[in-house]
């Protein structure tokens, strides 16, 4: 077994033993409880409301885990000094970073698969038709979570846990507002501000591109080419961040 997979599987084991998957109980309770409540309140559109809410809950819980586990992936190892014995082994620093990233990705994948199963069960209970668009939306939510994990990991290689959380959260919010940034660039009259926002626009991930929740809730599927391109964009963005994280981590003293 290669060093990356050894680190990844250990990171996965850590998340299981730290009971990260307990969030699923919260998710199931939230989803089923609110669905019961809203299905009673809404007469005409309860199918849409249940689908909408389920997708939003999957997204929210995934992003929260990605940010809060992602920012501590590397920092925790340094602060607790567990990194000393790992880095004294014949593994490169890049392998360590990749192993940690893949380990958290595996945790998130298992988490999301279980959330999706609970979600589909809820849809079935309320006789909501299960459309392919639901799977498209969940697939792109997973890509978005991969991007957010890469952002969190990137910042955690050179800043503290608190600053990593702030930066990651900030970039996540900006990533959903890139269309608005473009409007600001078009309308702004101040040169420096215009350049700054333009720079922010090009550096930020376009996370709205990965958001199909709205149309999935009403059963409208996106073109498969679009889903492919959006996923490719997300993975490329995450890839660039991971390369950056490896390069920065390479220079660090412990």
């Amino acid at each position: 077994m290669g060093a990356i997979s050894v680190i990844a599987l250990n990171a996965f084991r850590e998340s299981l033993r730290d009971k990260i998957l307990y969030n699923l109980v919260l998710f199931a309770g939230l989803l089923i409880g609110l669905s019961v409540l809203l299905a009673d309140l809404s007469i005409t559109e309860h199918h849409k409301v249940i689908a909408d809410m389920g997708l939003a809950a999957i997204n929210l819980i995934g992003v929260i885990i990605a940010i809060f586990v992602g920012i501590s992936l590397v920092n925790k190892e340094i602060e607790r000094r567990t990194i000393y014995t790992i880095m004294a082994r014949p593994i490169s620093r890049a392998s360590f970073i990749m192993g940690k990233y893949l380990g958290l990705s595996l945790t998130l994948f298992v988490n999301m698969t279980i959330m999706l199963a609970v979600f589909l069960l809820t849809l079935g209970l309320y006789h909501v038709p299960i459309q392919p668009s639901i799977f498209q939306a969940v697939a792109l939510i997973f890509v978005e979570i991969m991007v957010v994990t890469a952002i969190a990991l990137f910042f955690s290689t050179f800043t503290s846990t608190t600053l990593s959380a702030i930066f990651t959260l900030g970039l996540y919010v900006i990533g959903h507002l890139t269309a608005d940034l473009r409007t600001v660039v078009a309308t702004s009259e101040s040169g420096p501000i215009k350049s700054l926002i333009e720079l922010l626009y090009y550096l930020s991930p376009n996370l709205e591109m990965l958001n199909l929740k709205g149309q999935a809730a009403v059963g409208v599927a996106a073109a498969p080419e679009y889903v492919m391109m959006a996923a490719l964009y997300g993975f490329m963005y995450a890839g660039v961040l991971l390369i950056g994280a490896c390069l920065i981590f390479q220079q660090r003293d412990f």
Partner: peptide, 10 residues
């Protein structure tokens, strides 16, 4: 072996 070693305690 580092000083006062901290390991994966799980």
């Amino acid at each position: 072996l580092p000083e006062s070693p901290y390991f994966y305690d799980y």
